[in-house]
Amino acid sequence: MARIFVADNREFPDPDPSLSIGEVQRLLADFLPELHNAEVKELDKDGKHYIQFIKKVGTKG
């Protein structure tokens, strides 16, 4: 089943099926730093496996 990664309402293809979800998260975090501490949710739909990275909301200060 094809993996599709979703971050910031954008879909990203699987860069390498041999990578774990955590490894892909770290790879994408180079471009989207908010993914460093994002929550991960998985969903199977239409023959695809979606992995969604959800930013954690916090406060500074």
Rank of each mutant, 00 (worst) to 15 (best):
E39P: 02
E34P: 00
Y50I: 07
D8H: 13
N37Y: 07
A38Y: 05
F53R: 01
L28K: 06
V24E: 01
K45I: 10
K41V: 11
D30A: 14
L35W: 06
V24R: 02
Y50P: 01
E11C: 06
K45G: 00
L19R: 14
I54S: 06
D14Y: 12
K41F: 01
Y50R: 05
I54P: 01
S18W: 04
E11A: 10
Q52R: 14
I21E: 08
A7V: 11
E34D: 05
D30I: 12
D14N: 12
L27S: 03
V57E: 14
D30Y: 11
E11I: 03
F5G: 00
Q25T: 00
S20A: 09
K48M: 09
I4K: 11
D16L: 07
D16K: 05
V6H: 05
V40Q: 00
G47H: 14
K48A: 12
N37S: 11
N9M: 14
D30Q: 15
F53G: 01
Q52Y: 10
E34W: 14
G61S: 11
D8G: 09
K55L: 08
L32W: 07
L19Y: 12
L19I: 06
P13C: 03
F12W: 12
K55I: 11
G58Q: 09
R3E: 01
L28I: 02
D44V: 14
F5I: 09
S20I: 12
N37F: 10
L35Y: 05
I54N: 10
A7D: 03
Q25I: 00
S18T: 15
R26D: 11
L35K: 08
I54Q: 09
N9R: 14
D44G: 02
F31P: 00
P33I: 08
L28E: 00
I4A: 03
Q25G: 00
E11Y: 05
Y50E: 01
V6S: 02
N9I: 06
R3L: 03
L43I: 02
K55N: 10
H36N: 14
K60A: 06
D46Q: 14
R3S: 04
T59L: 11
V57Y: 11
L27N: 02
Q25L: 06
D8N: 15
L35G: 02
G58E: 10
D30L: 15
E23C: 02
L43Q: 10
Q52I: 12
A29K: 03
G58Y: 13
